[in-house]
Amino acid sequence: MKENYRLREKDTEIPLATAEKWTKKWSDPKTEIDLKNKVRAFLIPKINLELVLKQEIDAVRAYMGINDDGEQTLLIVGTRYDEKTGIYVDMLPESNHKEGDTENHVNVIAPAIYDFSQPCPPGGDPSSPL
C-alpha cells in the first residue's frame, strides 16, 4: 500500500471499462483483501465532488473496487431518479446518457465515473476518533 500522499490536483475520471473491472474484482469472492490493511475511509478530492454535482443529478452512488495496484478504491457516479421504475439510475459515460441532455444547461457536464482512491489507512487523520 502507498504511503500517505497529497491528493491529485486534477480530476480522476476513469473509463467505464476500468470501473467495471475494478468493481468486479472487489465483488469476486476469490479476491483476497488483506484485513491487516483494511480500508476504513477514503479521502475524497474536492474537484471530483464538484464535477459529479455539475451533472444535474438527483443523488450519487458509491461503488467499492480494487484498482490495478491492488488497493481498495471508491468509485462515485451520479444518478437520476426514474419515476417509471422507482430507482436511481446510474449516469454512466457512453451508456444511458441521452445526447443533448446537457445542451441547454450552463456549467453542466456529461456523466463520468470518478476514482476516489486515497484509502485510509495509511492516509488517515491520527487525531480523529473515527
Rank of each mutant, 00 (worst) to 15 (best):
E71W: 03
K46F: 06
K2G: 06
T85L: 13
T73L: 02
Q55K: 01
A41T: 01
V60I: 15
I14H: 04
V77C: 10
N4R: 06
A112I: 07
L74M: 12
L43H: 03
Q72Y: 00
V108F: 03
V89W: 10
L43F: 03
P129S: 05
F42I: 02
V108P: 00
E20S: 05
G100D: 15
P93I: 12
R40Y: 09
I57Y: 04
L43C: 06
Q55H: 03
P121G: 02
D11Q: 05
M91F: 04
H97D: 15
S27L: 10
L75F: 05
D125L: 08
K2R: 14
I33L: 08
A110N: 15
T23E: 03
I66M: 04
D58K: 03
I113T: 08
G70W: 09
G124N: 08
A112F: 09
P119Q: 14
I57C: 14
V106E: 10
I66Q: 00
H105Y: 06
Q72A: 06
P121N: 11
T73Q: 04
N67F: 06
T73A: 11
I76F: 14
R6N: 07
D82F: 09
Y5L: 05
P122S: 11
K25R: 15
R40W: 06
C120K: 05
I47Y: 03
